[in-house]
Design a protein around this nucleic acid. Structure first.
Lengths: 110, 110
DNA sequence: TATATTAATCGTAATATTGCAATGAACTAA
DNA sequence: TTAGTTCATTGCAATATTACGATTAATATA
């Protein structure tokens, strides 16, 4: 099928999985790391930095933008992409809570 | 292609994306939450709890086990699955560092 | 031994993802 | 206007993922 049955899960479970999915490709991880590193970016830089073709980078940027983790401002012929700080923080709250589920658990069973 | 070009990324970038990918499906998120909640589990419970067919749950468990986030002990005819505490902690270190990239960044550019 | 239970595996269908060449759209500069 | 630059979109091929029915393997129980 290739199609997740999202209707049988909670909104939170679906939200977590959507954030995780966008981090589930090394190119998008690399793009985000680069944006954090230089704190401002245009797509051309990323093509040179990462090594995938321009349409491929553009597609990954689109997915990051769709989730709100980055924003892009047109500046002449180029586009300035950067992290969306508020949305990143909001995402971090959700993901951190998921990752920290283990803190109140006593012991594993087996 | 459907095939990530992992060779052009760092080990850390690939590691992050592999962890994220396994969280990129709500069923696996739900399985992990359930395992944390009851702190011990057999597959049959998960089938009832989550609502997907038994082979589907088994497949998701396999992926979680493959990454080391859960472990399964055979107990008679059933299998006791639980969180692999050490590996979960190790994963959390990697993912938390990735999520906290924003803490030392001054301001977004646009 | 025969039957039941539990979970893994196999096989397959449907859909999603990844990657890129080709093209297009928007702007800049000569 | 014409040519160049930059990035988005389209279209397609290759591969991955998701889901489940059917089956198998392993164990338990009558």
């Amino acid at each position: 099928m290739g199609l997740a049955k999202t209707e049988m899960f909670t909104d939170l479970q679906n939200e977590i999985s959507l954030f995780a999915k966008v981090f589930g490709h090394p190119a998008r991880v690399a793009i985000l790391q680069h944006l954090f590193k230089i704190n401002s970016c245009v797509c051309g830089d990323l093509v040179n930095e990462i090594g995938l073709a321009q349409p491929t980078i553009s597609q990954h940027l689109k997915e990051l933008k769709h989730l709100g983790l980055i924003k892009g401002n047109v500046e002449g012929t180029s586009v300035c992409y950067c992290i969306h700080a508020e949305n990143w923080t909001a995402m971090k709250v959700v993901m951190t809570e998921f990752l920290n589920q283990d803190i109140n658990v006593e012991q594993d069973c087996c």
